[in-house]
Design a protein around this nucleic acid. Structure first.
Lengths: 237, 237
DNA sequence: TCAAAAGTGTTCAGTATACACCCATGT
DNA sequence: ACATGGGTGTATACTGAACACTTTTGA
């Protein structure tokens, strides 16, 4: 029986989060330094070979956890890349994209600094300042960012970056960072309030100015509508 | 080196077109009767194993041509399905979805009838009246239809079903069939005219009533915006 | 002349946008 | 008190939906 022998299947994930830097909040993602050929010493998306007993989405979740020590707030398949010449050997990569909550990333980083147990060969990069990448991973990241910017317009994926409770200004800052442009605070407030995806709490974030009400994501709804695929993605087996 | 050995890669395509039947225009797709286990004698999406020298999109275009004798007016990757238990052996299917022009399908069918050279084991089914399918192909088709219905709202994929020249009523009928609901002719006209994706010709379709102006798709624009992926999909090598 | 589809005009509601303005807090 | 961000009000423009109306053909 003729099979697709000689083709290997890999799973990689573009793991996105927002990080507060000296240049404000920026989109960032963790990359892994390759230790082997091809592209030894180059940075690449976290991932690995798909094993015989693991679903692709499970492999994505696993490598994500291995790389970051965290669980994603959102995980969706991006695309299957399979051009013949994208790797010296024949590799089809099923690529996922994921969102991490900023606070969890920060907490994890602090923990790593405290314990000195940070993973080797993993580093966070700003999405707009990437090093030379292995394979076609630069184009893959470009597509992942396009998908994120697209989806932020008609879904609530931006909430995947934020902690349990957040102010509308924080949510707006997340969206502004993703889109790369400023939004009118008044209109943003009304739009997101009327969307019904937020639950107002009785708490307020007290800071330098008038306290801002804290909101939380409504728990019943998905961050994005994935149609009939919801069940598939859900079952990480 | 540990590879994903034991995993085979297949490429399948949900090939969609509109066909005029006794119950009006309906979404239809060609299925292939399987001749081997597993699921022998069941109907399945056209496809085959990914070969070592072929890009996935090329394999999709090839099997599409082998099944229908036609070239698609639109071809896009749908999803990579890889659940462990979706097949007795471990198979990852990269699934595409494609649109065929109705007139080309009709012409091809007439040709087959004339010459008696219709492909064996291929049959067209109405999308809302499918037989029991092999593997997870029923869910795959459901997802392809969801994607089509979704995309028809913010792109001009519906034009992929129509011939070079068509009336606004024909375009509207296509959209109505996809969405499963009637649209206001007046509003539809204005929306599609203001979108700038159509070019009015000087010809008219003469029929039972007032002649309707013929339009053609503007050639410069894609049927749908696929962002940075346009180049990938284009290169069918 | 009449039925029916092609095509135009108009109204109305909902939504995006711009921006003026008031509110509540820390300094 | 005042600067600053939180939060409300409002005017305007645009868009989608509903529907009345005119035009043009074949029968």
């Amino acid at each position: 029986m003729t099979r697709s022998s000689g083709i290997d299947v890999a799973v990689s994930t573009a793991i996105l989060t927002l990080r507060r830097t000296d240049r404000g909040v920026v989109l960032s993602l963790p990359l892994v330094r390759r230790t082997r050929e091809p592209f030894a010493d180059r940075w690449a998306l976290p991932g690995g070979w798909l094993t015989a007993t693991e679903a692709p989405v499970g492999a994505a979740a696993r490598t994500l956890a291995e790389t970051t020590g965290l669980a994603p707030s959102y995980l969706e398949q991006l695309y299957a890349f399979g051009a013949v010449d994208r790797s010296p050997s024949r590799v089809v990569s099923i690529v996922y994209w994921a969102l991490l909550r900023s606070d969890q990333v920060d907490a994890q980083s602090a923990e790593y600094r405290r314990t000195g147990l940070a993973p080797e060969n993993v580093r966070w990069f700003d999405a707009d300042d990437l090093p030379p990448l292995a394979f076609d991973h630069a184009q893959i990241i470009e597509y992942a960012l396009w998908r994120l910017r697209n989806k932020v317009g008609y879904s609530r994926v931006a909430q995947g970056f934020l902690p349990e409770e957040f102010t509308l200004a924080e949510l707006r800052e997340a969206v502004e960072t993703i889109l790369g442009r400023r939004l009118d605070p008044a209109n943003f407030r009304r739009q997101v309030e009327s969307s019904g995806t937020l639950i107002a709490t009785d708490e307020f974030r007290t800071g330098n100015h008038r306290p801002a009400r804290l909101y939380r994501s409504s728990p019943d709804a998905e961050l994005a509508d994935r149609g009939p695929l919801s069940s598939e993605e859900m079952s990480i087996r």
